[in-house]
C-alpha cells in the first residue's frame, strides 16, 4: 500500500510517574480498515486510545495521526476524529437533539449543516423519534448509540471506540455491532479497544493483542488463531477441584497442549471429537465435555497464560 497509514505508532510509550502504561508499542492503522486493540483491563488500551485522540501527551516514541503530530496539531487532528469514550459523557442537562447540536457547534459547524446531519444520524442509530427526550432516562444501549451518532456529526475520517459495548446487554450489543459494521461498509476507519474476543472477531479486520503495556501478537483474527492455537478445543469440567487436579496428569499427551483454568481444563487439538473419545477411553469421568473451535480467547491464553476476563 503506498498511501501513508492513518495512524502510526513507533516505540510509542506512556508513563504516569514511574508507572508504564504503554511500553514501546509499534502499530499501523490503514485507511478503511477496522483495527482493534484486544486485551484485558489494565493492558494499556485506553491510554493508547487517549494518545491517538490527542487528549493525552505522548511520553516517548513517535505517533502520527492523519499524518500529523498530536503534540503540535491537536485541534486540527481532533476536528477530523470521532470519539466514543468508554464511559458515556453525554450532556445530561440537554436533550438528545441538543446533544447533537452543541457537539456539532464544538466543531464549528454551521447550524444548517448540523440540523441536516443530526436528523440523519439519529435515524441511523434508530433514535430519530427520541430527539426531544432528555438523555438521563434513555437505556444504556440508547445512550451508547447516541454517543456514536454524536461522534459522527463532523463526518470523521477515523472513529475511535473505547470498549464500545462494555456494560450492554446482548441484544443492545448486537445492534451496536450491526451499526458499526454499516459504518465500516461506508468506508469509515474504525479503531476500537475491547476485552471481548467475540467483539474483536466480529468487527476487526486486523488487531493487536495487548498485555501488560506491550503488544504480544498482531494479525487478522483468523491468522492469529491459525498461528498460535490449534483448530479445536475440548473443554472438560469436573464435579470437584480434586477430580480436576487428578485428571490433569492423565490428560498429558491427549492433545497438543493442556491448560488448567480455575473451573475447567482445556485440551488444544486438531481433532476435537477424536480427543474427546480418547478421554472417555482413559476412564476419566468429566461432568461435561464440550468440543469447540479455537477463538481469540485461546490465543490470549496461550500467549500470556491468563484469560481476558480477569
Amino acid at each position: 500500500m503506498c498511501a501513508p497509514p492513518l495512524v502510526q505508532g513507533r516505540a510509542l510509550t506512556k508513563r504516569f510517574g514511574t508507572y508504564i502504561a504503554v511500553d514501546q508499542i509499534d502499530f499501523k492503522v490503514e485507511r478503511g480498515e477496522a483495527f482493534g486493540f484486544l486485551g484485558p483491563n489494565g493492558a494499556g488500551k485506553t491510554s493508547t486510545m487517549r494518545m491517538i485522540g490527542c487528549v493525552s501527551p505522548v511520553s516517548g516514541g513517535e505517533l502520527s495521526v492523519l499524518g500529523m503530530d498530536p503534540a503540535l496539531q491537536g485541534p486540527a487532528i481532533r476536528s477530523r476524529l470521532g470519539v466514543v469514550p468508554q464511559e458515556d459523557n453525554l450532556d445530561t442537562e440537554l436533550t438528545v437533539w441538543d446533544n447533537m447540536a452543541i457537539y456539532g457547534r464544538y466543531f464549528g459547524l454551521p447550524r444548517s449543516v448540523i440540523r441536516e446531519r443530526a436528523q440523519e444520524l439519529l435515524d441511523f442509530v434508530q433514535l430519530g423519534d427520541r430527539r426531544q427526550d432528555r438523555v438521563d432516562p434513555l437505556s444504556g444501549g440508547m445512550k451508547r448509540r447516541l454517543t456514536i451518532a454524536r461522534a459522527l456529526v463532523n463526518q470523521p475520517e477515523l472513529l475511535l471506540l473505547d470498549e464500545p459495548t462494555t456494560g450492554l446487554d446482548p441484544q443492545a450489543r448486537h445492534l451496536v455491532w450491526e451499526r458499526l459494521y454499516q459504518l465500516k461498509l461506508q468506508g469509515v476507519t474504525l479503531v476500537l479497544t475491547t476485552h471481548y474476543m467475540d467483539e474483536a472477531e466480529q468487527l476487526c479486520d486486523r488487531l493487536v493483542i495487548m498485555d501488560r503495556a506491550r503488544i504480544v501478537a498482531e494479525g487478522s483474527p483468523r491468522e492469529l488463531i491459525q498461528l498460535h492455537s490449534t483448530r479445536e478445543v475440548v473443554e472438560l469440567r469436573f464435579a470437584t477441584a480434586e477430580e480436576r487436579r487428578d485428571a490433569l496428569p492423565l490428560l498429558n499427551g491427549s492433545g497438543e497442549r493442556v491448560e488448567m483454568l480455575p473451573d475447567r481444563i482445556l485440551v488444544y487439538t486438531g481433532d476435537g471429537d477424536g480427543t474427546a473419545e480418547l478421554v472417555a477411553r482413559d476412564g476419566l469421568r468429566p461432568a461435561s465435555v464440550l468440543v469447540r473451535r479455537s477463538t481469540l480467547e485461546d490465543v490470549f491464553l496461550i500467549l500470556t497464560g491468563r484469560t481476558l476476563e480477569d
Binding site: P85, D91, G108
Partner: peptide, 14 residues
C-alpha cells in the same frame, strides 16, 4: 462528575 469537559476536549476545543 458529568464528564462535560471530556466530551468537549475530544473536539477541537482545548
Amino acid at each position: 462528575y458529568a464528564g462535560t469537559y471530556d466530551a468537549m476536549l475530544a473536539t477541537p476545543l482545548g
